[in-house]
Each structure stands twice: as structure tokens, then as C-alpha cells.
Design a binder for these strands. Structure first.
Lengths: 332, 332
DNA sequence: TAATATTATGTAAGCGCTTTCATGTATAGC
DNA sequence: GCTATACATGAAAGCGCTTACATAATATTA
């Protein structure tokens, strides 16, 4: 691998001049630039990014922590973030936190030790205090899908409560009054917010919530499976169920059918997230759209703007969900 | 951030000794080691991985090129690869090739410029010749899901042909004789192999293949949608269809149902890949299991063994598919 | 044309480590 | 007690760049 030194010798200029044409940050006479470019070309020279990083104390890498790498939700997120940074010549290093406090902290430590210029965090288990402390730590970061007091400018969030509200409202508008709710783990902020939205919609229609209509799931298929069983067992008159995410909705749909119910005639189901498989389901799932890709891109833009000094406007931090009507909600 | 120099001063030893206890590769007297460890602890010292890389010309990063970052198939792959390397203290840099020759080459160049110690490539569009040339280029790599003559030891592949064979055999054994085939793009090696397996199974049963029973799709949902329409239009007597991947099977299922067919009574469908949403479908999809996660881990092990000198045995390069029986195939 | 202001280029000191080679020190052998 | 051997440590030269700062070349002004 040719080094900058060989290029400078071949071009008959100094190291510094070559560095200048590489970085294009200091004026260089056109004739000189051409000489250097030709020399680089002739030697097949590519700058060593490690050496650049060491000298400039900037790694051009951004660390991302997500709960899982697989799964449709994070796939979309990562894909869009990667594309955004790639265009800017940066690269992402990805780590999985598995919604576990220790693993999330480990991931963050790992990425910091990799000298990431910034982090994008989708973390669920670490405390707000930990994040506030992290803020003092030198490596800047953005938070996805979580609002932390005192750092609102770096939180890119979905209005989860409004999403929960919309889901239940949609059912209500379709005539349902006996509505079951399968929640995510209530210690997760988004699960709580969605449920709050549900309650608000109920209240608007003057319906009181009953504990027999609530089931706390796990945001995974199994939660939906168990949730439907529990809900139906507790109250056979339920005509609709809102699932706090699509994965649980998938489990719910399967189980409801196995119990002999026709969908959506006997039971309407609405999901949340609008992941890519939700329209492979039968009936195609009516759900709440979570613009996760767009939010990832926005987090990337925040980094590009604040860390890499790109002049970007319109950093949006709060996103709004909306109903995606498909076939799993029946009007009565 | 404390440097190795400050640690050495505090511990009263030289730089070199600190480096030795960090890397644990040269004997250091126990008393000295303890002193150093204590100093590191007191200063909250973490080695600067960039500087380590520059000095050792080893970045401890592995580049991965996949077609897409989203999608269930690559999600599983990436997740398992990341976990395997993370355990070894390495990190992965991920790039998307989008099954496009230019983008695949760009991705590889990008990762090489990032000084990756090795690459794991799931590339479809670049030629075998390009890969053979790449082999001379200095950065070692493993190839996933593709067999290239003259570098078989670094190819981790699925026996795709046998998979195609198994799919069709399963249908045949269930009494089907009029079987449609929705293929992936035939320029892709795996698509071709799967189809060859299909033909072989047919031949074994003395059934000749007809072009009206073949449709070349795109490995995406739309391919399945169009494929079913085309196949049913050309020959209404078809009782079963094999789809060369699950995504197309999802499209096929939806479309077949929209055309008024009962599944699986009127039409059996078998997929390929066993992606995570295949059992969310209705009927739950019978398919061929592609152990993509295990193959990714094996690729990682190859790298760990050959590049990082870990002593690992049992590097398996060819994986075997198997039938996953669910509900989408009907016996006649 | 000389004096001054601009702009382009070169010099050299790091960035924080690894690693070779040389040196020092403890242990064994006689 | 003296030499030979093994083992532990230190000194210093890079790894391939960036970036103050110094200097040389060119343009501007009177």
C-alpha cells in the first residue's frame, strides 16, 4: 500500500501538500493539485483511514446501539441510517443491546472504545440518570424513541401516546366498545405511552377500562398468543383487540383463528409499528405506522450537523404516527 | 482520556510494560502487572483502539457486505455474525450491496479503505473473475452462499440444488403432479441451482417440465404476485407451486387467495429460506430451511481461525437444507 | 521599484500505541 | 563465588497521517 510519503515524492511536493489535496481544506494551486492527483492515481494510493483518525482524532465512525439486529423494525432503521452515513463517507458500527441493562452499557462502552465520533442509541434498559451521566462523558449521542428530560434536543421520538390513542379511536369509530389491550412490558416507556393513549381514547368515549381487558405482553409473538388466550378467557364478548406491536398482533391473529374465530368478523385486531411483514398476514393487518426509517435518518442528520458541521436545517425531533387501514378491523 | 504514558508514569514502569499487560502477550512479573492494572484502574484508562490499530496494522474490524440490511434473511445473518465477533472483541462494519455490481464493488472498496482485517461477502452481482482478482488484493475474505472455483475453502454455501430438489420432492410425495415453479432471477447462482434441483426431482418421477409451469420472478413479494397470476392463467390445473423463496411465497399466497382459491386445499405452496415471518403467514408456510445464521457464524469462525489465529476446528463449508413442514401443503 | 499584504508550500512535532533490540536482574549450575 | 541462562523491563523507532508554524512565492499598492 502506497503511503502519502511516496505520493509526495512522486509529485515533487511535501507531505503537507498531499494531505491538503486529500482533505481539500486549504487552498492549493491548481497545477499542484493536478500533479498530486496524478501521482495518487499512478500509485493507486488510498489514504489510510486509521492513520487519518489517529492524527485528526476523528474516526468517521458512528456507533449504533439497537435492541436486536434481526427483526423487521431494526432492519429498516439500520438500513436507512447506514445509507445516510455512507453518502457522507462515514461508517457505522453496530451493537446489540438486547433490552438488557448490562448489555446496553457494555455495547456503549464497546463503541466508545472504538472511538466513535458519535452514538445513536435505541436503548431501553438503562436509566435516564445513566444517560445524563453519559452526556458528560465526551462522546456525543442521539437517543431514539425515548424522551429524556434535560436533553430533549437530542431525542428523536415518536408520539407514542398519540399512536395508542389513534389505534383505539379507530376501533371505537368502527363501533367496537368491548376492546382488549395487549401491552408491551410496562417498564418500557413506549409501552406505557401507548397504553396511556388507549386509555385516553376510551375516556373520550366514556368507556371505563377494566383490568380483565388488559394483558401485559412482551412485544413478541408469544405475548400475543398468550394475550389472546387470556383476554378471551376472561371475557368472551370482546370484539376487538389492540396489540401494542405487530409481532404480538401476529401471535394474536394465529391464536384467535386456532380458537375458531373468524377474522375480522368475529374479532378485529389492530397492531402498531407497521413492520414489513404486516401486510403478509391474513387478514392484512391494520396498524399504526411507525416511521422508524425516517426517524433514523433524522438521527443521522443530527449527527452530521452537530458533529461533522454539515449545514443542515429541519432537524425534526418528534414524529407523528398514523393509522394504516388494511383488513383486520371489521366495522360493526 | 488517559494515555498509556500516564499509566506508565503512575505505575512507575515503562510504556512497553504497560503495553505488555494490555496485550498479555509477553510475560510480566505478577507484582508489576498488579501495579499497572491498579494504575489503569485509577485513571479509568482504556486503550485507544485507533492507535493500537495504527501501530499493529490490525484494525480488529471485519467488513460485511450483504444485499440488504433490512429483510429477515440478512437480519438473522448479521445478528449472528455480530454476536460471534463481539465475543472475540472484534467489531463489524456493514455495507449494503443491493445486488448491484457497482454498489457491491463500491462497498468492498469502502470496507477495504476502512482497513478491515477481513471481509465476509454475500455478493451476487460481481463476477467470479473479480473475486479471484480480489483475492490477490491483500484483504482476505470469505464468500457466503456462492461457490467460486479455485477458492472453495473460503466459500460457505448451502446445497441449494438439494434444497430445490427437496421442495419439489415434498410436493411430489404428497401426490402433486402439476407443479408450477416461481424462480428467482436466473442470473443469480442460487436461483439457478434451486431450479436445477426442481428439475431433478421432476425427472425422478418421470415428469417432464413445461415452460408454462415456469415463471422467473425477482425474489420479492411482487414476483410471487405476478408469478401466481401468470401460472394460473397459463394452466388452471396446477395443484401446487414451489416458490424459490419465502418472500415470493408470501406474495403468491395473497394473490392466490384473492383469486378465490382455498389454501392449501385448492393450491399448495412451498417456500424456501424459512425466514422468521414464514410462520406468521396463513396458512403457515411449509418451506425449506436455510440455516443462514449458522452459516454466518461459520464464516466468522473462518475469519477468527485464519486471520486472528484462534485455534478452531470444524470449519464446515457446505450446509444442507431440510424441509420444514407446516400447513401450506395439502396431500392429494 | 520597494514595501507590504496575500497566498501557497514546506518543516516538523505530534496522535497513542506496538515491537524490536538492548540491557539489567534473578536463578541455576558447577 | 563465578559464569551461563532465562526472564523481566526499558529505550526508541516507527505506524501514516494532520496541522501549527515558518518560510517562500506572488500579488497589490503607492
Amino acid at each position: 500500500m502506497a503511503t502519502i510519503y511516496e505520493v509526495s515524492k512522486l509529485a515533487g511536493v511535501s507531505l503537507a501538500t498531499v494531505s491538503r489535496v486529500i482533505n481539500n481544506n486549504t487552498p492549493v494551486r491548481e497545477a499542484t493539485r493536478v500533479k498530486v492527483l496524478e501521482a495518487m492515481d499512478k500509485l493507486g494510493y488510498h489514504p489510510n483511514s486509521i492513520a487519518q483518525s489517529l492524527a485528526s482524532s476523528r474516526s468517521n465512525s458512528i456507533g449504533i446501539v439497537v435492541s436486536e439486529l434481526n427483526g423487521p423494525f431494526f432492519g429498516t432503521l439500520l438500513s436507512d441510517i447506514e445509507a445516510a452515513f455512507r453518502r457522507a463517507g462515514k461508517h457505522v458500527i453496530i451493537a446489540a443491546g438486547h433490552s438488557d441493562e448490562r448489555l446496553e452499557k457494555e455495547s456503549i462502552a464497546f463503541l466508545k472504545s472504538r472511538n466513535c465520533d458519535a452514538l445513536i442509541l435505541h436503548v431501553e434498559a438503562v436509566s435516564d440518570d445513566y444517560l445524563r451521566q453519559l452526556k458528560e462523558g465526551g462522546t456525543p449521542f442521539v437517543i431514539l424513541n425515548r424522551f429524556v428530560e434535560s436533553m430533549s434536543d437530542r431525542c428523536v421520538t415518536l408520539n407514542n401516546q398519540h399512536g395508542g390513542y389513534l389505534a383505539t379511536q379507530h376501533l371505537l369509530r368502527n363501533g367496537h366498545r368491548k376492546i382488549g389491550y395487549i401491552s408491551g412490558p410496562m417498564w418500557k416507556n413506549d409501552a406505557e405511552q401507548r397504553y396511556l393513549g388507549h386509555l385516553r381514547a376510551l375516556a373520550e368515549y366514556g368507556i371505563e377500562s377494566k383490568s380483565s381487558l388488559f394483558y401485559e405482553g412482551d412485544f413478541h409473538e408469544l405475548g400475543g398468543v398468550k394475550g389472546v388466550a387470556a383476554l378471551l378467557h376472561a371475557d368472551a364478548d370482546i370484539t376487538a383487540i389492540v396489540c401494542a406491536n405487530d409481532e404480538m398482533a401476529a401471535g394474536a391473529v394465529t391464536t384467535a383463528r386456532e380458537q375458531g374465530l373468524r377474522l375480522p368478523e368475529d374479532l378485529s385486531i389492530i397492531g402498531f409499528d407497521n413492520v414489513n411483514f404486516s401486510h403478509y398476514m391474513y387478514p392484512k393487518l391494520t396498524t399504526i405506522d411507525y416511521p422508524i426509517g425516517g426517524m433514523g435518518v433524522m438521527a443521522a442528520r443530527w449527527v452530521l450537523k452537530h458533529i461533522y458541521q454539515q449545514k443542515l436545517d429541519n432537524i425534526q425531533t418528534v414524529f407523528e404516527p398514523r393509522v394504516i387501514e388494511r383488513d383486520s378491523v371489521h366495522s360493526i
